[in-house]
C-alpha cells in the first residue's frame, strides 16, 4: 500500500482559498473601520480637541445638565413601562392559544417600519393644541405635546417592540410545562410567575431592557417633532447635540455625543457579556 501524502497547498473542500479568505476579511474590516470605528474615534477626538477641562465644563452648563436629567427621566419612565408591556404581551402570546395572534404580532412590530418623524407627527396630531383632545388637556393644565409627556409617549412608540420581541421567542421555546407543574403543585398565579417564569426569562428580559434603554436615551427624530425644543425644559441629550452643533458649539456638541457614545459602549459590553454567558437563555435570532 502506498502512503498518500497531502499536497502541499491542500485545503478542505469546504473553505475558500487562503487568498480569498484574507482578502474578504481585510475588505470587511476596512469597511467597518471606515464606517463604524472612524466616526467613533472622531466623536472623542472632537470632544477633547480643546482639552478635557473644557469638555467637562461644557457638560456642567445648565442647559446641558437639564438635558441629561431629562433623558434619564424619560428612560426611567419609558423602560419600565415597556418592560411591563413586553412581559404582558409575551405572556398572552406564548401561554395561550387564541385567534388573531399573527395580526397582534404584526401590530406590535409596526413601530419598526414607521419613520420616527411620522411617529412624532402622530402624537402632535392627537395631542397638539389644534386637536380637540389636545386643546382640552392644555386648558386643564396637562400639555402633552411640546412637553415632557409627549416626549415619553413618542419614545414609548419607538421602543415599543423591543422587550416583547426579545421575550416571545424565548418563552415560546421554554414552553408551558414548568408553569403547569407549578400550578398542579398548588402555586398561585403570581407565585408561579415570580418563582418559575421570571427566573427563566430574566436574562432575555435584561437584554431587551438594555436595547430598549439605548434606543430610549438616543431617540432623535420622534422626540424632535414632539418636544418643541424648549431649552432647559424639553430638550433631551440628542436634541441638545443638534442645538449645540447648529450654534457651532462644536466641543459642547461632541462632548454630549461622547457621553451618549459611552452609553452605547456600556450597552454593547453588557449585551455581549450576556450573549457569551447566557446564549442558551436568549432568543437565537437577534434582529433589531
Amino acid at each position: 500500500m502506498t502512503e498518500t501524502t497531502l499536497p502541499l497547498r491542500w485545503r478542505p473542500a469546504t473553505t475558500e482559498p487562503a487568498l480569498v479568505r484574507w482578502g474578504l476579511t481585510v475588505l470587511c474590516l476596512a469597511v467597518l473601520g471606515v464606517l463604524l470605528f472612524a466616526p467613533l474615534i472622531a466623536v472623542f477626538a472632537e470632544a477633547l480637541r480643546d482639552g478635557v477641562a473644557l469638555a467637562i465644563a461644557s457638560l456642567s452648563e445648565p442647559d446641558a445638565r437639564s438635558a441629561i436629567r431629562l433623558t434619564l427621566l424619560v428612560a426611567a419612565v419609558v423602560v419600565p413601562l415597556n418592560a411591563a408591556f413586553g412581559i404582558a404581551a409575551a405572556w398572552a402570546i406564548t401561554k395561550f392559544d387564541w385567534r388573531g395572534k399573527p395580526l397582534v404580532l404584526t401590530l406590535i412590530d409596526l413601530p419598526f417600519s414607521v419613520s420616527p418623524v411620522v411617529a412624532g407627527l402622530m402624537f402632535v396630531l392627537l395631542f397638539g393644541a389644534n386637536s380637540a383632545l389636545g386643546a382640552w388637556l392644555v386648558a386643564h393644565g396637562y400639555p402633552i405635546v411640546f412637553a415632557v409627556p409627549g416626549i415619553m409617549l413618542a419614545t414609548l412608540f419607538i421602543t415599543f417592540p423591543f422587550v416583547a420581541r426579545e421575550l416571545i421567542p424565548v418563552m415560546l421555546e421554554q414552553g408551558r410545562a414548568e408553569e403547569e407543574a407549578a400550578l398542579t403543585l398548588g402555586a398561585t398565579g403570581w407565585r408561579m410567575f415570580f418563582t418559575v417564569t421570571l427566573p427563566n426569562i430574566r436574562w432575555a428580559l435584561l437584554y431587551g431592557v438594555l436595547l430598549c434603554n439605548a434606543r430610549a436615551m438616543g431617540e432623535f427624530g420622534a422626540v424632535a417633532v414632539v418636544s418643541g425644543k424648549i431649552r432647559g425644559q424639553t430638550t433631551t441629550m440628542p436634541l441638545m447635540i443638534e442645538m449645540f452643533y447648529n450654534e457651532y458649539l462644536s466641543v459642547a456638541a461632541f462632548t454630549m455625543a461622547a457621553l451618549l457614545a459611552l452609553l452605547a459602549f456600556v450597552t454593547l459590553t453588557l449585551k455581549t457579556a450576556l450573549e457569551w454567558r447566557y446564549a442558551d437563555q436568549l432568543a437565537a435570532n437577534h434582529r433589531h
Binding site: L36, L211, G218, E242, L260, A264, F265, T269, K271
Partner: peptide, 13 residues
C-alpha cells in the same frame, strides 16, 4: 460585538 454599534449609538451622534 461592534457590528451592533449602530443599534446602540444614538442616530444624532
Amino acid at each position: 460585538a461592534a457590528v451592533d454599534l449602530p443599534f446602540a449609538l444614538p442616530t444624532a451622534v
